[in-house]
Design a protein around this nucleic acid. Structure first.
Lengths: 223, 223
DNA sequence: GAGTGGTCTAGACCACGAG
DNA sequence: TCGTGGTCTAGACCACTCA
């Protein structure tokens, strides 16, 4: 016996899947839908919250609820963001000093001068990913980024979580939509950290892909 | 100006963080908390729903709301699940025939005989991860699993999403808690898929780690 | 100003858990 | 049986968008 909320969410989901409700279309207003389904407005809103968490609809205050275009899933490839034709990138550079989490991440003393690059990529109209990249200031960040020759190793830690309020508003996503958070640390062959990055990818529009080649002579080097 | 829901959630969060509310403790009942915070029960329940989505509390119908023990984060290492001392594994083996998503995943014709290994790992009392591993039946799965000599390449696609109802009940997690879903495909050097796996890791208790070694002579082989 | 979603209230009734 | 959380109702009032 499913709850009313789930029943309504299921119905709307199939209407979207079958194209009965097309991408970009506005749903009837919440009071209208509540009347149609013979439920109260809070119940109807609960149903919509489910669809929102799945990235199927977008709620816009004062305008209505809209069926989202199924976003092409972009794939982050282990190592760097995939360059893409219709991917616009906005970059902001800031100088700051190491504090908090950044100290162990970059393995530097507190207050070490750092440069932060803030990347915000867009896929067409909608924000796609947020990246904060940190580099020690003495490591000539001018030519900058992507794969750099001195890199010897990159460690990427991937977690799934809900976005912080900041991230939710920057990426214009629901605060209930899961995001892929990647912490990437690149070191040179002396073990020195040459770059650390925190990437946030909305779960409804991004995957991460990691490819491991198994050399036939060496295998089983794991702990 | 934060909403009442967020204010209450923040307050409870700090009470948990400071140890004012200890792990395992039962929170006061919802009507009691609603009175304390001078809000209605739905508003209070909205606040608790936020904490639940973050994996901080557990709601048990008929008993109360409980502060969860901060689970040690276990790390999935690119390639395989990390063996761990207090990690119990339950395995179930099933024979089936390829259908649906499994066909393109394993690159086999429909109805190819497959063997499914279902892994459910536990960290102490609580379920930790769910893995479904598929192997073509003609590929001698008897000695089975982990890293096998014939593997030439492993591709792992990582996404963040909410769990399916099935996954939520199997892993005993809230349906609003983000999970890390990893699809892993291993091929031999002829390109044949020798194993495909779908892993589900609850976002509050698992990370995935991928390590890339950059050979100095070859770099920038990405598209 | 009209219409939309965002938040909140003060209840009701049901289902589950434990004694 | 009693206290708990789960679901739902029928409103109220505010904030935002657009004409």
């Amino acid at each position: 016996m499913a709850s009313l909320r789930d029943t309504i969410a299921d119905d709307l989901r199939t209407q979207i899947a079958t194209g009965h409700l097309k991408a970009g279309a506005r749903l009837p207003s919440e009071p209208t839908l509540a009347t149609q389904y013979k439920v109260s407005t809070p119940t109807l809103r609960n149903a919509l919250a489910l669809l929102q968490a799945e990235g199927l609809i977008e709620k816009i205050h004062g305008k209505g609820n809209f069926v989202l275009h199924p976003l092409r899933r972009l794939t982050y490839k282990g190592g760097r963001l995939t360059p893409d034709a219709d991917l616009h990138v906005a970059i902001r550079m800031t100088n700051l000093r190491a504090r908090g989490d950044l100290i162990p991440l970059l393995k530097v003393p507190a207050r070490t001068p750092l440069t932060e690059f803030l990347f915000l990529t867009h896929q067409g109209e909608s924000p796609h990913s947020l990246a904060r990249i940190y580099v020690p200031q003495d490591l000539a960040p001018a030519e900058l980024l992507w794969c750099r020759p001195e890199w010897a190793e990159t460690r990427e830690t991937v977690t799934a979580r809900v976005p912080t309020p900041d991230e939710a508003s920057t990426l214009r996503i629901s605060s209930t939509l899961a995001v892929l958070a990647i912490t990437r640390v690149s070191s040179d062959n002396t073990g020195r950290v040459v770059e650390a990055a925190r990437l946030v990818l909305p779960g409804d529009r991004a995957d991460a892909l990691f490819i491991t080649h198994h050399a036939t002579e060496e295998r089983g080097t794991e702990g």
